[in-house]
């Protein structure tokens, strides 16, 4: 199945990126089966698996939907918070 460039789509959005505070933190060595759920369900495609099978996650670009929290908040997420006030996604349309 071909790759969808979600990063490019996220590029049109307005974000206030909080460089000093990652609001979602993944546990070390997350269970693959759990991670795969997020690979499928994250609308922002932030839970990546590269060609070598390496897991790559960065919470910049998060749409703050909460999908990963609901699916894996108890398993492979070390932290899920809303970004600090005024930070994160800012919908211009919504």
């Amino acid at each position: 199945m071909s790759y969808v460039n979600v990063d490019e789509k996220l590029g049109v959005n307005k974000f206030h990126v909080d460089e000093n505070n990652a609001h979602i933190v993944l546990k070390d060595n997350p269970a693959l089966a759990e991670y795969h759920k997020l690979f499928l369900a994250c609308p922002a495609g932030l839970y990546k698996i590269d060609d070598n099978g390496v897991l790559r996650f960065d919470c910049a670009g998060c749409l703050e939907c909460g999908t990963c929290r609901v699916l894996c908040g108890e398993t492979i997420l070390a932290k899920w918070e809303f970004p600090s006030g005024g930070m994160g996604i800012e919908f211009r349309y919504g």
Binding site: M1, V4, L40, A41, C42, P43
Partner: peptide
Amino acid sequence: CTLSDLITGAATLPRLLE
């Protein structure tokens, strides 16, 4: 997509939208 069912599929959500 309902979360419990989405994670049993083969396609990512961004792929479904595309």
